[in-house]
Write a protein that binds this DNA or RNA. Structure first.
Length: 469
RNA sequence: CGGGAAGUAGCGCAGCUUGGUUAGCGCGCCUGGUUUGGGACCAGGAGGCCGCGGGUUCGAAUCCCGCCUUCCCGACCA
């Protein structure tokens, strides 16, 4: 009954499965230059939904969109010592332009703290100008030695937020707000991916940050993916770029800045968090088409019914696509399964005779028969239920594959197929190196109750360790 | 960037060892017909700078060198 698999099964070769899905769901292609990515319409439609959802949350959090240039003077990067040290291995640098060698090389932005810092310094005069809350949607370039579509490409798309505050407490609170109300809320309620929230250990911190927070998701192969991060930059960039404000008392004070980002990597995470051997499984919230209405036969009655259903669905705010009967039925079903469309409504002459349609969910095998008249009204609830179920399935998977351990040796063992949680006290510099030697990293540090600590120096912290993308 | 493997039609591959007519096969694609409720069938057809550049040779997909790209494993990262 089950059709032969057109994809490499996950259990056989997960990376291969991932590539098969990306190719066969028509999400992306490799670009001509190593590490570059062509995002195809179906993949881009998913990105656009991610984008608009995150953008709305960012605006709700008070930040405004702006745009800064792709070209950055090389000297800017050098102004913050750790920053330049961290990024120099992955910089792409323009040395020639206009047919001549440039006096000063230009860096293609790997991130925009430096240019934005320069302009923050210009725009901020008084405490009344604070907080300054900026965001930009842009492409960035980080030369990748081992690229993978969506997960790691030399050029990728993202959103980068940059803010300046009068006090450390304000900056810290805002970074936390973004982390919880923008990223974590988005990941849970839209992507349906449960997260472990925490701070990065010092060696995993963003170059130039004093604190880095992360949302770590678990993929279907038990590996971790950092799905979004927020950084407290302290006064490092403020000092490097002279971002001062005049306080109420008339004193010149250095600002505290933050930055935070989420990228097209999220599309890769979405694929790997929910997909199965038949392909993508899209949560309804991000699916370009939430319903595909499949005409079983190319007959006037059937086509008319399909068009009617699509109209009714539209009236209920449901995005749908009508697949008219060209080619075999099984082939078309399989193609939509690979693309992960949440709900399939099959309409055939046999159904119509009885005034019904056949409805099935991408995450279930059973088909249901619904009265034709009920379809449009019942679909929204079905989509909502599926959204919830996908989250819960991912949560159950994650919890079942997260084990508490009491030693680094056990952590390495567990990290072969999932996440290990252990006391941070057990992990010193030597132990962390031992983990890293086995391609296992400390993904984040948490308090015992799972909340985000203020620093790695708090007592009784636990860490989540895993292999990662 | 180090170690390994590989690039032949949109995809998957054979041919290469031992150089020699018009470079093959499966899937997909196009046309016509029969089909159609889980990857249909028949017939006809289109589609190739054999990754790129150089070399050896009367002659290169095949042998040699360089480069590019992809995949796997490591060190770096969203």
């Amino acid at each position: 009954m089950a059709p032969p698999s057109v994809l490499t099964p996950q259990a056989e070769d997960f990376p291969r499965w991932y590539q098969d899905v990306v190719a066969k769901a028509e999400m992306a292609d490799n670009g001509p230059v190593r590490g570059t990515m062509v995002i195809r319409p179906y993949g881009y439609a998913i990105w656009e939904r991610i984008q608009s959802s995150i953008d709305a949350r960012i605006k709700e959090a008070g930040a405004q969109n702006a745009y800064f240039p792709l070209f950055i003077p090389e000297s800017y990067l050098s102004k913050e010592a750790e920053h330049v040290e961290g990024f120099s291995p992955e910089l792409a640098v323009v040395t020639h332009a206009g047919g001549e060698k440039l006096a000063e090389p230009i860096v293609l932005r790997p991130t925009s703290e430096t240019v934005i810092g320069e302009f923050m310094a210009k725009w901020i005069q008084s405490y009344r100008d604070l907080p300054l809350l900026l965001n930009q949607w842009a492409n960035v370039v980080r030369w990748e030695l081992r690229p993978r579509l969506f997960l790691r490409s030399s050029e990728f798309l993202w959103q980068e937020g940059h803010t300046a505050h009068a006090t450390q407490a304000d900056a810290s609170a805002y970074a936390m707000k973004i982390h919880l109300e923008v990223y974590n809320d988005f990941l849970l309620s839209v992507l349906g991916v449960p997260t472990y929230l925490g701070i990065k250990p010092p060696r995993e911190r963003f170059a130039g940050a004093v604190n880095t927070m992360t949302c770590e998701g678990m993929m279907r192969d038990g590996k971790a993916l950092q799905m979004a991060t927020s950084h407290e930059l302290g006064q490092n960039f403020a000092r490097a770029f002279d971002i001062f404000y005049q306080s109420e008392e008339g004193q010149a004070e250095l600002c505290f800045t933050t930055s935070w980002g989420a990228s097209t990597r999220l599309v890769g995470g979405l694929i790997m968090a929910h997909g199965d051997d038949r392909g993508l499984i899209l949560p309804p919230e991000v699916a370009p088409y939430q319903v595909v209405v499949i005409a079983v036969r190319d007959e006037p009655e059937v086509n008319k019914a399909c068009a009617t259903i699509q109209q009714l669905l539209k009236g209920h705010g449901v995005r749908s696509f009508v697949d008219v009967a060209r080619g075999s039925f099984g082939r078309r079903v399989t193609d939509w399964e690979i693309k992960g469309v949440p709900v399939r409504v099959e309409v055939g002459p046999r159904d119509l005779k009885e005034g019904v349609v056949t409805v099935s969910r991408r995450d279930h095998d059973e088909k249901q028969t619904w009265p034709l008249d009920d379809v449009a009204t019942k679909i929204p609830a079905l989509l909502a239920m599926m959204q919830q179920d996908l989250y819960e399935r991912a949560l159950a998977w994650r919890d079942a594959n997260t084990l508490d351990v009491a030693s680094v040796v056990d952590a390495i063992e567990v990290a072969q197929s999932g996440f290990a949680r252990l006391s941070w006290d057990l992990v010193g510099a030597g132990e962390e190196a031992e983990l890293n030697n086995q391609a296992v990293t400390v993904r984040c540090l948490q308090r015992a109750d799972g909340s985000i600590p203020e620093s790695e120096l708090e007592n009784d912290l636990v860490c989540i360790v895993a292999k990662s993308y």
